[in-house]
Amino acid sequence: MIEVKELRKAFGPIVAVDGISFRADLGDVLGFLGPNGAGKSTTMKMLSCFLAPDGGTAGIVGHDVVAEPVAVRRNIGYLAENAPAYDEMTTEAFLRFVCEARGITRRKRAEAMERIVESCAVASVLHQPIGTLSKGYRRRVGLAQALIHDPSVLILDEPTDGLDPNQKYEVRQLIKKLSKDKCIVVSTHILEEVDAICTRMIIIDRGRIRVDSTPNKLREEIGGNLDAIFRKLTTNSDEPSVAGGVK
């Protein structure tokens, strides 16, 4: 469902993503790991058609991100870093706007709202402006926005960053629940998260893929816990790890 070939993106002299290729299918929860500035967010921005790649191709459900951006956006749910949302809108107005923009008809809208309010647990903040919400609720509203049209591909950029342990647990449960009939890509730098929810993991560092495997296989092959593996893979180079972090 997601097919990425030799994807490349540079910001001036800084190469953020340097020819990465991978694929993900239905039922996959692909963990995207890497130190800060490794190119995770840039890759996700290209998958969601926000950034245009400099080279290579990426296809989502058969649509190319460069040639058919609108078709791609129709098929994905995207939660950007820090869950951006219009602060002055109430949760309800915001979700209604997303429904409208996504062309969910009035009749289906009530149904979709009801489903999403329940699964993302945002009922208590429905009439509150988003700017006044706590980090946890803000993130949930972001998830609700990404899920409201029931997309087949979900791209979540650090969905649990900054949440407390309870909220992290809830978000992970939600992702697990959703994973059966979707293809999900989750970026994170929290390793326990990978163990908790991911069926596959990719470790990316300085714009290149270092590992494309499963958590269990990796432990068998290299040995030790994931933390040690992660450190070994992302620091064993002669140059210091200061790849450009790009917002």
Binding site: F50, A71, R73, E81, D87, A101, Q145
Partner: peptide, 14 residues
């Protein structure tokens, strides 16, 4: 500034 542009253009809007 608030990065909502990324949200806006994740919707099927040109």
């Amino acid at each position: 500034r608030t990065n909502t542009i990324e949200l806006l253009f994740s919707l099927p809007i040109t």
